[in-house]
């Protein structure tokens, strides 16, 4: 049985949504000043999320805990600021992961069922704790880059994937994060507006977001020592004016954009290339940056794809640990 405390711990549950619905509150109701306690708690949740800290559940007032979560999320969406929603989603993921790891197995089964319709079953074989249907496992697991999350490294039998408890917690908490992020794209959520009286209370939060973002987004200079060998090899060819395949150009452009180089910088970099066409190059770089065309900001292909297109060369010991060139960069940059 899922208790009220469970709903406070896991407010993404469908049961939590229907629990909240019975109060019949809308955003406008929070303008009246009757619900200051809930508002304060919601603001606190946002503040913690911005700072990247987990706020522990206050079990003394569960209703306030549940309602303030919903309000905090609504405010995050209402601010029309994807950054704060991402921060919130990330911290929810972390919080749920910690809580779920400590949860009883039977409880996890209920959470998975109610939250995402997943059919977890208890299993006790070869060190695995649960099994779950293959198609449900594959909704989330491919998002993880590490080799230990590849399907081929799980025991799969009769349409079920066998999985340890810690990994179930990781999978579920990631699903929580994705649920929060996906909701941002819903029309209803896009239309959401924060009433004046509430917006005033967000002043401090907005200030906090600005200062945080400035610190985090100060443009980083690409660290050359952290660039993976495949990218370095293409860059070397470009510098030497050698012809480079379309796929290689795409890879290097998407990579450099993603580690913070500007369109102009990349444009200048490509000037060396033999068949350089100024207009075409600028168009393509801006396309990959998501400024024009499909408006998707591209990321470079995974290692696997690079391997099959013959672009994966000069592998080093870090390559073994990663599945994506950007992951390589992230790991090595830390060490520099």
């Amino acid at each position: 049985m899922l208790t009220i405390e469970d709903l406070a711990k896991y407010p993404f549950l469908n049961k939590a949504t229907s629990y909240i619905a019975q109060f019949g509150l809308t955003l406008d109701d929070f303008s009246s000043g009757e619900f200051n306690k809930i508002i304060d708690r919601a603001l606190m949740k946002l503040k913690y999320a911005i700072e990247g800290k987990i706020l522990r559940i206050d079990s003394s007032e569960l209703d306030i805990e549940i309602l303030s979560h919903a309000l905090a999320l609504a405010l995050a969406y209402g601010m029309k600021n994807a950054w704060i929603v991402r921060r919130f989603a990330n911290i929810e993921q972390k919080k749920c992961y910690e809580l779920m790891k400590a949860e009883e197995s039977k409880k996890l089964i209920e959470i998975a069922k109610d939250g995402f319709g997943w059919n977890l079953e208890l299993a006790d074989i070869n060190g695995y704790d649960f099994s779950m249907p293959l198609n449900q496992f594959l909704q989330i697991a491919p998002k993880f880059q590490s080799q230990s999350w590849k399907l081929v490294n799980f025991m799969v039998s009769n349409g079920k994937v066998y999985i340890k408890k810690e990994k179930i917690a990781r999978l579920l908490s990631e699903a929580v994060k994705i649920k929060i992020l996906k909701k941002m794209e819903e029309e209803e959520v896009k239309r959401m507006k924060i009433p004046e009286e509430l917006a005033i209370k967000l002043k401090d939060i907005k200030k906090l977001i600005r200062s945080r973002r400035e610190i985090m987004e100060e443009r980083e200079v690409p660290k050359e020592g952290a660039i993976p060998p495949c990218i370095s090899a293409i860059m070397k060819d470009v510098k030497e004016g050698k012809p480079v395949s379309h796929m290689a150009r795409f890879t290097v452009t998407a990579f450099l954009l993603n580690i913070g180089m500007s369109v102009e910088e990349i444009f200048n970099f490509f000037k060396n290339i033999a068949d350089f066409d100024e207009n075409k190059a600028l168009y393509q770089i801006r396309h990959i940056a998501g400024m024009i065309g499909s408006k998707t900001k591209y990321i470079p292909p995974k290692c696997e794809v690079l391997k099959s297109s013959g672009l994966c060369i000069n592998q080093d010991k870090y390559c073994e640990k990663v599945k994506h060139p950007l992951q390589y960069y992230k790991i090595r940059r830390k060490g520099l």
Partner: peptide, 14 residues
């Protein structure tokens, strides 16, 4: 991505 995992599974990749 999910289908890639299935393809890699039967090809024994990774």
């Amino acid at each position: 991505d999910g289908r890639r995992e299935i393809a890699d599974y039967v090809r024994g990749i990774g």
